[in-house]
Computed example of a mutant assay.
Amino acid sequence: MNNKAHDFLRGLTNNEEVIQEVLEYTQNKFVKPSFSKFSKEEKYIETWEAYNEESKLLGVFKTLKKYIVQLQFPVKAGISSTEAYKNVTLRGKENTTNSNLLLEDENALWLDIYESKLIGKVPVLIVSNVNDFKTLVCAFSNKNEPADLPKSMGAAFIKGINNWDRISKLKKAWQEEKTAISWNQFFKQEILPNRDLYQDKLIILSTKPYSGVVHEVLNISESLWQEASVDIRKEHECAHLFTLNYYGQMAKNIHDELIADYAGIIRVLGKFDKNWMLHFLGLESYPNYRNGGRFQNYMNDNCSSEAFKCLVTITKKAIDTIQEFDSELGNVTSEEDRLSRIKSICEVDILSMASDQGKEILSDVYRKNRIVNEAIL
Score class of each variant (00 low, 15 high):
K271S: 11
D112L: 12
N253L: 10
E336D: 14
I126Y: 12
K271Q: 13
M299C: 14
K121Y: 05
S152W: 10
G358S: 02
V122G: 10
L102V: 13
G293H: 10
Q323E: 15
K62I: 13
E17L: 11
S327T: 07
S39P: 06
K252C: 08
L102Q: 14
D165E: 15
A147L: 14
L205D: 07
D7W: 10
N15W: 07
N219T: 08
F242D: 09
M250L: 08
P123F: 11
K93Q: 07
Y289G: 08
F242Y: 10
Y114A: 11
T243E: 02
K121N: 12
K151F: 12
K178I: 14
K37T: 12
H215Q: 08
L125W: 11
E16C: 01
A239W: 00
E53N: 15
E24Y: 04
G120S: 14
I376G: 00
D231A: 05
H279M: 08
K309L: 13
W225A: 00
R370H: 05
D196Y: 06
I119Q: 06
G11R: 12
L64H: 07
K37I: 08
W174V: 11
P146W: 13
H236N: 10
D231L: 04
R370D: 08
D337G: 03
V69I: 05
N95A: 06
M299R: 12
I345L: 13
K43R: 08
Y198Q: 01
L311M: 14
E374V: 13
D165I: 06
S34P: 05
